[in-house]
């Protein structure tokens, strides 16, 4: 297996020193080149799990292996795209994309490479713009180009389109799908949108909350491009909705119980 999570547990201690289990007994394996979505309601620990694969957060117990190596810290083999583009405002578009490259290649090579990936996200006409001059969707595309430029084995995406409007999001879905087909990257995509996960991924890992566990692992075998298969999409959407409804009800019940008790 290319990415493997073995018996991952994550416990936080809140300010009263009460343990709070965020992830419980997570077992997950992902093959090279797969597009996998991690889907779940907010608070299910899906972003925490992704940050663990990135090496930004450590687990309380259990290991994550990527390409045969245990993850202990962040590395360029795992690119990450966040919900906010996280572009450096003091650098222009090209400089941002070159940021991860500056130590391993000459400036000229870096610029050519940046140009190549900016072309891939259809932003080659904006090399010297500054982030504040770009729309949210454009910023997120630069952020994707920046991650791709360091040629990671895995692209980790944490609700990358969550802050964008519906039309932009839908356009970027198409672009991301093309990039994935072109580059054959392994993509782990965290989202709370059921339709987004069905539209994009080979597999959907559905997570439940309190504590965060994996509920099911669904293989999506609707042929691409998927827009033409509305019925299958709708059926799958309903199936997942049913699964998640129980989880959301659970959260609401708990919140009501908490309010009643306080």
């Amino acid at each position: 297996m290319f990415i493997e999570a073995k018996q991952i547990n994550k416990v936080y201690f809140d300010k009263n020193n009460k343990p709070n289990t965020v992830l419980k007994d997570i077992d997950l394996s992902i093959q090279q080149g797969e597009f996998v979505s991690i889907l779940g309601p907010s608070g299910c620990g899906k972003s925490t799990l992704l940050s663990m694969i990135a090496g930004l957060v450590s687990s309380t117990s259990g290991d994550i292996i990527v390409d045969g190596k245990k993850v202990i810290k962040p590395g360029k083999d795992r690119g990450m795209v966040f919900q906010q583009a996280a572009l450096f405002p003091w650098m222009n578009v090209t400089e941002n994309v070159m940021f991860p490259l500056r130590k391993e290649m000459s400036k000229k090579e870096g610029m050519e490479r940046a140009q190549h990936f900016l072309k891939m996200v259809q932003l080659s006409n904006y090399p010297s713009h500054y982030p504040h001059e770009l729309s949210g969707g454009m910023q997120q595309r630069v952020s994707i180009a920046r991650s791709l430029a360091m040629d990671p084995a895995v692209l980790l995406m944490d609700e990358p389109f969550g802050a964008l409007d519906e039309q932009t999001r839908s356009r970027l879905h198409g672009q991301l799908e093309e990039i994935w087909i072109d580059t054959k990257k392994t993509i782990v995509f965290v989202t709370h949108s059921i339709s987004e996960s069905i539209k994009l991924s080979d597999r959907i890992i559905v997570m439940g909350t309190r504590p965060g566990t994996i509920l099911t692992d669904i293989t999506v075998d609707i042929p691409r491009p998927r827009e033409q298969h509305r019925q299958e999409i709708a059926a799958l959407e309903e199936q997942i909705m049913g699964l998640l409804k129980k989880e959301i009800d659970k959260v609401i019940d708990e919140e009501q119980a908490y309010e009643a008790g306080s």
């Binding site: 930004l56 810290k73 990450m80 996280a86 940021f99 991650s147 360091m150």
Partner: peptide, 15 residues
């Protein structure tokens, strides 16, 4: 400094 900048930079091999 926005922690997001630091996280992003770390995933790009800066520390």
């Amino acid at each position: 400094v926005d922690p997001l900048f630091i996280k992003a930079a770390r995933t790009m091999g800066s520390n």
